[in-house]
Amino acid sequence: MSAGTFEGAPLRFADFTPGAYLGEARVVLDRERFERWRALFPAAAQVEKAPPGLLMALFMYGFAEAFAPHPDGNIHAGQTLAFTGRSLRAGDGARVSVTCREKEVKRGRNRVRFEARMCDDAGDEIMSGEMVVIWAV
């Protein structure tokens, strides 16, 4: 599997190879995202830097974009996270890169473990983590 954004049919469980780099996506913390976040969590109104939940949302967006398209019906089953303490302000960009670490069929479900990392435009890591996804197809 090559890196980058895919078009066409959704990726299937059979498409993943453990150890394979899946791609990278650039994401931007645009002001609209920040405003929507503040609509959800008004306590963030006075915060200039993205709080952890908004970083996580951006991280998930980058994860989805780095190797799209994902099939409908995927389920997020588990997650580890490590935060460096760096954050982003409205208008800042970041890159999210994703690698497939493991896949298995467990109790009849297709489980894929991914590693993802988000770095700011200077290349400094903001956060990283591993997520287990029940892949729908």
């Binding site: 306590a43 709080p51 939940g53 949302a57 997020h76 089953a77 997650q79 580890t80 490590a82 935060f83």
Partner: peptide, 28 residues
């Protein structure tokens, strides 16, 4: 991760906005 965002809110309410998670592990 919307449900998870509520945990980050609990942390912010408890400690203030300058205190951050360093690491986490969870199951959905």
């Amino acid at each position: 991760t919307l449900s998870l965002a509520v945990l980050w809110e609990a942390i912010a309410v408890t400690f203030g906005p300058d205190v951050r998670p360093a690491a986490a592990e969870m199951r959905f």
